[in-house]
Nucleic acid binder design. Structure first.
Lengths: 216, 216
DNA sequence: CACATAAATGGAACTTTGATCCGTTTGCTG
DNA sequence: CAGCAAACGGATCAAAGTTCCATTTATGTG
């Protein structure tokens, strides 16, 4: 009995893509969604150290249900993180479809800055060495880099921003800006990101190159 | 009875400078030292989340004794931090007395980099909003800046390093270098700090100025 | 030196919270 | 509809933070 749970645990929290025998029960899926939703809300309110009981209660499920799917807190945090990454990258496509390239880019970068800003407590957990977090940086990059690349290319082609900016540099730069100096962080980060966006627009019609100063 | 403890608690952890009636008992001082020493060791081994019981046991005191002086974990962490800041700054004077200025400076900067490197877990706690940590940044700067300034001035006067380098800029630069990229951090940080030191030596006999590039 | 007293002590006990276990319920399939 | 494995929930255990207080002890005094 124990072995069954252990082997099942080894796949992290990506249960959506395997139906070898039973295709995953509907109520189980429903509860998993409820838990993730509740966890997101509770983490935002009380931080990632909030009691698991609180999350289970808010989701309307029992403790056992929660622990069945997320054997420990780190798994739950990681799952919420992935879900938020997904939500944020999904918006890139939506924005691209509804706005002109330059506007879509700047909207999404602000959305991304917000995403980072809510990850204060999580950033600490990320470096805790917990194995559940090991794959998160790769997941982060694998999702955000293409999303931004597509927006960036479109905006560059449209002449809204300079070409030659490496998506990952921009992601890191905004990430650092949005995290640094936790005191007046909110305003400060906002101003710095605006500045960065203006910088992107600056060389739009003029010469290319010099985009690597963002990586410093 | 309760009130007495509460009012006493309000002064944080600076008990050394008040003897209104009884001058602080010797055994109490001894125990406080033992606790701080044990806490430093345990924090280094098991991180700042190590059980309080473990620290009390290592210090050879009861839980009550520990909690009497440090009402919660944050107070204890802050006290250990201050003590380590004191130890590090104290070494600046010692090094200055025993080595030529340039050597004293580079030795101490490496010592400082080590200090920072052991503060990985603490850095996260620093931004937790706990009131016990509020005064730490000021304490940090108030102690390190003069210590470094004195070493830096002496080295500049001796012609070992360029003049015009702001102590705080250097502290921040090394701090950032020693914290960034938690993967291969140890080696990477070491190399970067060496680089920075070479940079300091570069303009020693040549022209001054340009020292502000460190603040970027 | 013996005494009085307030400070200091230690650890039992209480609380909170993470994690496990298992009897019961429920959705799925044939 | 019947059988079964999956899913459920919450009682329960365990670990860790925090409080409390009866007892001990250092310190100043007569």
């Amino acid at each position: 009995m124990k072995e069954a749970r252990l082997t099942e645990k080894s796949n992290g929290t990506r249960d959506e893509d395997r139906q070898p025998k039973r295709p995953i029960r509907a109520d189980a899926q429903r509860n998993e969604d409820a838990v993730l939703e509740a966890a997101k809300a509770v983490f935002a309110t009380s931080g990632v150290d909030a009691p698991v009981r609180e999350i289970a209660a808010k989701a309307g499920v029992g403790l056992g249900t929660l622990y069945r799917r997320f054997p420990n807190r780190a798994d739950l945090i990681a799952a919420v993180f992935r879900r938020e990454v997904d939500a944020c990258t999904a918006e890139a496509g939506a924005l691209a479809a509804e706005h002109p390239p330059g506007e879509a880019l700047s909207c999404w970068l602000k959305r991304y800055a917000d995403f980072i800003a809510t990850k204060k407590g999580l950033a600490a957990a990320l470096h805790s060495g917990d194995p559940a977090f090991e794959t998160l940086p790769a997941y982060f990059r694998a999702n955000f880099e293409p999303a931004l690349a597509s927006l960036l290319d479109a905006a560059a082609v449209a002449g809204d921003v300079r070409p030659g900016v490496a998506p990952y540099d921009l992601l890191r730069a905004i990430g650092n800006l949005s995290v640094a100096s936790g005191d007046d962080g909110a305003d400060h980060a906002g101003r710095m990101v605006d500045l960065l966006l203006d910088g992107l627009r600056f060389g739009a019609t003029a010469s290319a190159g010099a985009g690597d100063q963002l990586s410093k």
